[in-house]
Amino acid sequence: MKKLKEKLELFFKEFEDEIKNLDSLEKLKDIEIKYSGKKSQLHSFLKLIGDFKTAEEKKEAGFLINRTKSEIEERLKVLKENFEKKEIEKRLKEQSIDFTKPVFSQNDGSLHPITFIKRDVERILTGMGFSLVTGPEMETEYYNFEALNIPPTHPARDMQDTFFLLNGMILRTHTSSCQSRTLEKYNPPLRIFAPGKCFRYESIDASHETAFYQVEGLVVDQNITIANLIGTMKTLLSEIFHREDIDVRLRPGYFPFVEPGFELDIKCIICNGKGCSTCKHSGWLELVPCGMVHPNVLKYGGIDPEKYNGFAFGLGLTRLAMMRYKINDIRFLNSGDLRFLKQFR
């Protein structure tokens, strides 16, 4: 037994000496074969168990051999893991990338700036429960004027210089033309908005275009108040301009399809009301013509003004786009110029 112990100790020492100077995974494999494989010396020790007489001795000899075996296996396992780890570390050290090298993108498609603004306003208004409706660009005088309480000889027709067509129709001067179309179609209570292109006969310059975009908003219900109009506008405009609580003010304004009619100003978003060139030093920006729906407009739409009332407002989408993107010349919008368009990706 003592002899076996000595043999095993010697064997283990030999193993320890050999792994001391080990420097590669390949050599480790050789050692594995030599010390723990089926052809190793350790294996031959097992034959010696038969030389012992008693069961107890046999048992002890087996235990001694197995202990050495598992110790060797454990040491080999740790060594192997260390080698593999070192191997990966080595590989990682050798690898590198110049992440500042350029990539070549083909993605230069763009949306028109009006599309961006329209989607934004759409998102906000639908979130507030408004439904999107549309109407034709080539409109009848009835929907563009009469149904909005603007009879043929009304001076307000001068306010909106109109393109008249030889087929007796006109190009709509505002998206308010969607008001009566909607009122005829849906019953109150209703909340709608109508974005779209409008046309005015006027000379074109950096801030005037013959074709531009508006969104008309309309709320009809029972017991709607001027205070409701102001509250709704504040909510809408705070969202549009990303302000917590935008300051608005109302002034008298005249539009035949509302009574009373207002001009709604917002506190200048550039100077915060201190006065700058954008707000012509007034501290306020005229932004939303609005008012309480004129009872005649409700009547034209087949709604009883004694039972229902409401408010309407108009937002210039083109103006909003110019404000948001700081576009200094309205003519770019209809120019088809890619130097302009490609900036809106």
């Binding site: 429960g129 409706v133 219900d221 409701n228 102001i230 709704t232 504040k234 909510t235």
Partner: peptide, 19 residues
Amino acid sequence: FDNVKPALPKLQIKAPLRN
């Protein structure tokens, strides 16, 4: 107008119409 306190209208919860 400054003396009118803004207030949101009380409206039904209704899903917007699909366009």
